[in-house]
């Protein structure tokens, strides 16, 4: 199996606390993966490292067919490489309309000058309409995103993520604070997305993970404890000890 992202022996220490300890991790080009683990297992730090927010003390993060090392690139550069990230808390630009939010995310040149002289083409507008339909916000395009409900904001953020057309999606607890219907819809969107790209979901909610129906990686104290199907890992005694058994 070819790999899209290969995380190789990374470690990072905060003030003597070893948040990630010699972690290695691979994911293919069109794959859904769930990451679970107790608090402090290093899930968010792992995402921070991949997206360039935190620089690891040692190790490599190799990306794509050319196996380029992402360590040392800045966040914007990594995002342009095709890695999209959704935060735990929905972060959309509340002061701007849904359309503006999506237009900002639609894949286009990101340089200051090309953006300054950029005018939306028909293709861009169609893409926005398409995405809006997909995330169920087609009727809300002209509303300020601050006025949306919590679930709608989550979808808008996922929509923005999709608009970037990333090859790897990192999603941090997408289902938090959602109603059951909203969760179902979120699952659909993610499963659909995983058909064409790699999706990594960090989630606490086992129910949600089960519905994703994918390979699961369990993190503990900064390294991989177990990997496999949900049933496989949940039957692992170590996993039960550190996580499920609590």
């Amino acid at each position: 199996m070819s790999t899209l992202l290969e995380v190789n022996g990374i470690s990072v220490t905060f003030d003597g606390f070893r948040a990630i300890n010699n972690l290695s991790f691979n994911i293919g080009p069109a794959e859904m993966r769930a990451i679970i683990g107790p608090n402090g297992a290093g899930k968010t730090t792992f995402m921070d490292i991949v997206t360039g927010k935190t620089r690891p003390d040692t190790g490599k993060v190799l990306w794509g067919e050319l196996s380029r090392n992402l360590v040392g690139m800045n966040e914007a550069r990594i995002a342009q490489e095709g890695i999209g990230r959704k935060f735990q808390k929905p972060t959309v630009f509340e002061d701007q309309t849904v359309e503006e939010n999506l237009l900002m995310a639609v894949k286009n040149k990101r340089g200051a000058f090309s953006v300054l002289f950029w005018k939306p083409s028909d293709a861009d507008m169609n893409r926005v309409a398409e995405l809006a339909a997909e995330i169920g916000l087609a009727n809300e395009l002209m509303r300020k995103s601050g006025e949306l409900s919590h679930g709608q904001k989550q979808w808008l953020e996922i929509g923005m993520l999709l608009a970037q057309e990333p090859r790897l999606l990192l999603v941090d607890e997408p289902a938090a604070g959602m109603t059951p219907e909203e969760r179902e819809k979120t699952t659909d969107i993610l499963v659909e997305a995983a058909k064409t790209r790699a999706v990594v979901v960090v989630e606490h909610d086992m129910e949600f993970v089960r519905r994703l129906n994918c390979k699961v990686t369990v993190l503990h104290e900064g390294s991989v404890l177990a990997e496999g199907s949900l049933d496989h890992v949940t039957s692992n005694q170590q996993v039960i000890d550190v996580y499920l058994g609590r």
Partner: peptide
């Protein structure tokens, strides 16, 4: 100050 809290 190092650590996550000191991140940007």
């Amino acid at each position: 100050l190092k650590g996550r809290a000191a991140g940007d």
